[in-house]
Design a protein around this nucleic acid. Sequence first.
DNA 1: GTTTTTAGAATGGTCTAACCATTAAACCAT
DNA 2: ATGGTTTAATGGTTAGACCATTCTAAAAAC
Lengths: 238, 238
Amino acid sequence: MFQVAKQNRVFQDVISQIEEAILSGEIKVGEKLPAERQLKDMFETSRGTIREALRVLEQKGLISIKTGTNGGAIVENVKTEKVSESLDLLIRSQSLSLKHIAQFREDVEGNVTYLAARTVEEKDLPVLREIVERVKKAVDAGLPMWDDYISADNDFHMELARIAGNPIYISILSTVHENINRYYDQFLDKEDERMKENYQDMVEILKAVERREPGIAQELARSHVRRFNEFMEKNPEK
Amino acid sequence: MFQVAKQNRVFQDVISQIEEAILSGEIKVGEKLPAERQLKDMFETSRGTIREALRVLEQKGLISIKTGTNGGAIVENVKTEKVSESLDLLIRSQSLSLKHIAQFREDVEGNVTYLAARTVEEKDLPVLREIVERVKKAVDAGLPMWDDYISADNDFHMELARIAGNPIYISILSTVHENINRYYDQFLDKEDERMKENYQDMVEILKAVERREPGIAQELARSHVRRFNEFMEKNPEK
DNA sequence: GTTTTTAGAATGGTCTAACCATTAAACCAT
DNA sequence: ATGGTTTAATGGTTAGACCATTCTAAAAAC
């Protein structure tokens, strides 16, 4: 029947008002908020309170702050980065097993690759080919280039997400990569054979995307990820 | 080659240390951080700096703060709420459209239903049947029960996620629901016909799950969600 | 006249010290 | 027992000072 009677925190009100001004377009991206000392006078409060509000707005990704003359709080374009950050916290604070992340990744990479193969345009292909080239170079150089190889593999999947055209997938995928890479470092045996197999996978995925065959591309991406996962699961330390 | 040499903000260091202590389990959920005046001494800094750090940790959803004796910063279980909040900001700042969430939801519900149909056990079925019963009652009662109907529909999908057995899907799906429900309220025409059609969808999905037919269940779930989305997109205000 | 150096000013970052507001618990009066 | 009162601990807020960083423009050097 009744709502909890919550306390009034001045900085909360400051946050709401500035957030509203930004989202309504009253203050546009790239523009600066008034200086802290001015805001203090405008809101008739103290600088400390203003600064607490700015910390929250900064954390939300609505503003960024520079020091010095001409510094101040600049209104930012909200990026997907904060979604990744909070999702990452959520994932890390749950007791998730590698199996859960691995399964989720398999599904997501499948979906992303499906969408990418459906929406890919001619101009996207050189970028993908260039990444596959990088993987080839790393594979040819062998184990010393393992890190480059992993990094290019991630780029390949992220580029597919970009092509798929849905920013949500970009956030989700970067979070998944961040989390699963921690496990890869720990549990994946760095073998030459792995690199070669996975390079072949990528070549096949690229071909399917070039031919605009979503279903096939999806299944290839899934087994590509599954291969990684299986090798990790075989590892006894897990 | 080089990382950006970022300036040292004392509160940033405080945030990192406390965050690390929480995520590593050194301080457990439900436990309290030391009082601000104690933290100030421990970190050898000022109370203002400590408070700026606490604002950020609060915004991240890692702690909540109570006033009064026995008050203080309590370590919280990270909830999906903050992910939803940042997604919501993305939408409101127009970096993300309803279309993106709708598409993502279609994929996710499809994946979840596929998994659920594969892993479902006999004991899970009564729960699903009970939810479908609730939907039937709401549908029979017609438009006045619209909210109950939407709520039961969400429950149905969340229960499938639970059955699927991957906590990531539970988090992701609640985030999606939290966000998309706002749009349903705004853009979905509340028509009797909608309720009936969607009830039929759910009955079919349940049947496919009962028969352990993952592929069919997945496709049914996808078109179920797509139906919602299409009705929203037809709405001119969108 | 052009370039370099320097000084100033504006801005965020931090600190101190005080007081206010809220809350739980202990105590007291009825 | 019930209800009020006091007390102490905690977060919330304020004011004022000083430091650190950075841009600008004046001054100096060439």
